[in-house]
């Protein structure tokens, strides 16, 4: 069962995406900020990370930087960034830091699932 770590300070966004992903045979882990996400990623080694950019405590850019700087298997986990701000500078930075993909808010949850499936095979529950 694929394990997906969903990191967003918005409970609403986490609920929307988690609900869509649960239609597939995967386990959802949730974190409200980057600091909690780093701990959860190290403990649980998820197969995929969905990471919001703008968050309190530790934002998504710094979280991505730290994920990719680890010496453990965590650095190889594919990360897709979620952002309400798709400036060319931010997208360039996200790409340079090693994110596999990004999505600009607003988006439908099904679109997020489709983009995850392009990187991580998911099987829909029957």
């Amino acid at each position: 069962m694929p394990k997906i770590l969903l990191v967003d300070d918005s409970k609403t966004t986490r609920a929307i995406i988690a609900k869509a992903l649960r239609a597939y045979d995967c386990e959802i882990l949730e974190a409200p900020n980057g600091a909690d996400a780093l701990t959860l990623a190290a403990e649980s080694l998820p197969d995929f990370i969905l990471l919001d950019v703008t968050m309190p405590v530790m934002d998504g850019i710094e979280t991505l930087r730290r994920l990719k700087a680890t010496e453990s298997a965590v650095k190889d986990i594919p990360v897709m960034m979620l952002t309400a701000n798709s400036s060319p500078e931010e997208i360039a930075l996200i790409t340079e830091l090693g994110a596999r993909d990004y999505m600009t808010k607003a988006y439908k949850a099904d679109t997020v699932v489709d983009r995850v499936k392009a990187i991580l095979p998911l099987v829909q529950k029957s």
Partner: peptide, 15 residues
């Protein structure tokens, strides 16, 4: 929910 919706619209305007 309202904060996220406002944030999405502000992010679009910023872009």
């Amino acid at each position: 929910a309202i904060g996220e919706l406002t944030n999405i619209i502000a992010g679009d305007l910023k872009t």
